[in-house]
Design a protein around this nucleic acid. Sequence first.
DNA 1: CTACAAGTTCAAGCCAACTTGAAGTCAAGG
DNA 2: CCTTGACTTCAAGTTGGCTTGAACTTGTAG
Lengths: 152, 152
Amino acid sequence: MAPLLTIGEVAKRSGVAASALRYYEELGLIGSQRAGSGHRRYPRAVLRRVAFIVFARRIGLSLEEIGTELSRLPPDRAPTRDDWSLLSRAWTARIDERIDELHRLRAGLTECIGCGCLSLERCRLANPMDRAAALGPGPRHWIGDPPRAAGG
Amino acid sequence: MAPLLTIGEVAKRSGVAASALRYYEELGLIGSQRAGSGHRRYPRAVLRRVAFIVFARRIGLSLEEIGTELSRLPPDRAPTRDDWSLLSRAWTARIDERIDELHRLRAGLTECIGCGCLSLERCRLANPMDRAAALGPGPRHWIGDPPRAAGG
DNA sequence: CTACAAGTTCAAGCCAACTTGAAGTCAAGG
DNA sequence: CCTTGACTTCAAGTTGGCTTGAACTTGTAG
């Protein structure tokens, strides 16, 4: 088992295409050494980093956000379990938010659309205390005022 | 209160940009009558349809999927609460799936990355009974074999 | 009548996250 | 040496969900 991996090996082990790995490197999410030939050589630690990226993508973070997160890992030494733990803690909050939103959407589906009251303006779920109106039109309560849904 | 709405009115009331509404029409998700001038005129019912689209988008359906769903509404009469209810029921399952996935991701974060064992191949969470391996590399258990994450 | 806002079509642009293709280099087996 | 496959860079293409711009028409207030 060689100490350094080729891009093909990392691709196979991580399930991430080689082209994507090059792209991640271009964005600075991962790094590589080069063999004399110019070919990339990866330390095994890159596998954990890539796994983290896959995770984070699936949770819904953009590559830019992931880059910001990863940049908080210590550059001078291999990350410890505490380092990873630190990153992951912030995310559980984010996951929970999204789960909450899905619960709201679920409630909206069954209680609002299901009951036939789906209204953009008057539904009590969409606009429980007429506060959502301040945010503009649309079912703000359900969708949790998303970044750029529906043309922002 | 006029019986028919202009595109600007629908945009304001739904929170969806006029350009998006035209796009939805192009895709057949909504329809419009035309005034003699060529301007679009929408019956009020379109607001509910648009609300449904916003909902569905947020849940994670593509516009194509939404079109398929909407096409199941009766074309010959105004949809009843039962019609809407029928559509929405299928979605709660979908929402629940996504919620489950997020719970798995959350578990992966705290139990796996947090504990420092994040491995693409050997982690018991990633690969509880070595069955995930059949699906190919990557943390299949967490990500639930996504449609096209990481280069499909 | 004159502005000006709001509407129209059509084509093109944008963004993220990659993939694909072209054209060339490197490594390993026979 | 030759072939084959894995690798390199760089530019351009893809997909989804729109937005933007150009060029033009309609509707309305003063």
